[in-house]
Nucleic acid binder design. Structure first.
Length: 220
DNA sequence: TGCCAGGCCGGGT
DNA sequence: ACCCGGCATGGC
């Protein structure tokens, strides 16, 4: 039998088309958005980004110079604003102290080291780190999120509680190592998850991945 | 209305 | 090594 992940990619891409992630005008905006969107709808993130835009530039310098409490007001719509304002401040503090405030200097690290450095920061876990590495640093790491696991487990392609890094290794092993493919693939998982794989709903009839299933009754 | 959103951390077992 | 509560707003 052939590799399954390239097949899934083709099914999703042919059905939905390119998603064009990450929606941002700069690498700094990607980093900020990656932290703000933690367990939060992108719609709420956009409100926060617009608030910042109205008061300056969506930049790490803005995060750096804005007091944490004031920053929290700008990002209120994303929820967890106390945690997230703290996390943004911690990231820029790290970047300013260790890399002169330059993302490109941080991103010039070897990918594995870069990931370890990001993960060492409080408030940056696997997904946020990989978002930053893939979409801002533009290095080929596969981003796993709740939708990825849910979609795959619903179609019996992985265990629901599979470890993040374990699934990442499996998918990366099968998928051509290409930054643009990784960027699209993750976005496509989010898209199919939103449209066809909500938490408390059964599988849908018109999900483009249904042709993967054997002998599974689809309801909804 | 309740459920959910592009997670992560810290403490308990 | 898991499992859980907390964090919090806004849209449907």
């Amino acid at each position: 039998m052939g590799l399954i992940y390239p097949v899934i990619y083709d099914l999703l891409y042919n059905h939905f088309g390119p998603q064009g992630w990450w929606p941002a005008e700069s690498k700094e905006e990607i980093v900020i958005g990656a932290i703000l969107t933690q367990n939060t709808s992108w719609q709420n993130v956009e409100k926060a980004l617009n608030n910042i835009r109205q008061n300056g530039k969506i930049s790490l310098e803005f995060i750096h110079k804005t007091p944490r409490a004031e920053l929290a007001k700008f990002i209120r719509s994303t929820g967890y604003f106390n945690q997230k304002s703290e996390r943004l401040k911690l990231f820029v503090e790290f970047l300013y102290h260790e890399f002169n405030g330059k993302l490109d200097d941080l991103f010039s690290l070897d990918t594995y080291i870069l990931r370890e450095r990001l993960l060492s920061l409080k408030g940056i876990g696997f997904e946020t780190a990989d978002d930053i590495i893939l979409y801002a640093a533009e290095k080929p790491v596969f981003v796993i999120d709740a939708y990825t696991k849910r979609v795959l487990s619903r179609h019996l392609l992985c265990d629901a509680g599979i470890d993040y890094n374990e699934l990442q290794v499996i998918i990366q092993k099968e998928t051509p190592c290409d930054v643009n493919i990784y960027m699209e693939y993750h976005a496509l998982f989010v898209k199919v998850g939103k449209d066809f794989c909500l938490r408390k709903k059964p599988l849908c009839y018109n999900c483009p991945l249904n042709k993967l299933d054997k002998n599974i009754g689809h309801t909804g």
